[in-house]
């Protein structure tokens, strides 16, 4: 094995791909730097789609493991690590949502908080709404759920989503529009349960 040059963490100046190649070449610090940079983003994407901390952690670990395994074959300049990871996490999350739907967790089965603090009504309501949103995503076709989540839960632009999903920006637009309409219809029947009539919000 040839001696390696360690890439030391000095902020965000080193591209993700360079750190990944350094990891593949045996740099022991590269994995730590990459994880510190990427894991919060990966975990955030997973928890916003799944709204289940345990499942989100499993997805995040699996996505990072796939990154470590692909490292030796990674070619700098062929694509961004973040784009690749968004795609992997989106696919892993829709797999989980499909399994959740198959196991009978329906829209009307809104998860209760594990141990709600007394009086934390707002926290409970937020938790209820986000569980309902995740369960409604499970009802959508995979590609619609991914496009909606990348657009509205990650705040990405249509060209960015197009690169992640390997489709045209126009197809992204179509998927997000149809997905959002379907989500609104799925959640419309739960306005009372989700407390939207209590806070004076207007339903469109």
């Amino acid at each position: 094995m040839t001696p390696m040059t360690a890439l030391h963490s000095d902020g965000e100046t080193i591209p993700d791909a360079a750190l990944l190649v350094a990891y593949a070449n045996g740099d022991p610090a590269a994995a730590r730097d990459l994880s510190a940079r990427l894991l919060p983003r990966v975990m955030g994407q997973a928890i916003r789609m799944l709204h289940d901390r345990g499942e989100a952690e499993d997805v995040a670990q699996e996505a990072m493991l796939r990154l470590w395994k692909v490292a030796p074959d990674w070619r700098q300049g062929e694509g961004q690590v973040s784009t690749w990871l968004y795609s992997v996490v989106a696919n892993l999350c829709t797999d989980r949502l499909r399994r959740r739907k198959r196991n009978g967790v329906g829209l009307d089965q809104i998860a209760e908080p594990a141990d709600p603090a007394p009086g934390a009504a707002a926290t409970i309501q937020t938790n209820t709404r986000l569980s309902a949103l995740s369960n409604a995503l499970a009802e959508l076709p995979d590609r619609q759920a991914q496009a909606v989540a990348l657009r509205h839960l990650e705040g990405l632009s249509n060209p960015e989503i197009a690169a992640i999903m390997d489709i045209s920006p126009r197809a992204v637009e179509s998927l997000t529009a149809r997905g959002k309409r379907a989500l609104a219809a799925l959640l419309a029947g739960q306005r009372d349960a989700l407390g939207y009539d209590d806070d004076g919000s207007q339903h469109e």
Partner: peptide
């Protein structure tokens, strides 16, 4: 609308990365 509020709430949620998860990774 309600859906946009849900999206905004989801984006505002804190993202915990536990020491255990980091250790596993």
């Amino acid at each position: 609308n309600d859906l946009d509020k849900m999206f905004a709430q989801a984006l505002a949620e804190p993202v915990p990365v536990s020491d255990d998860l980091m250790a596993r990774v």
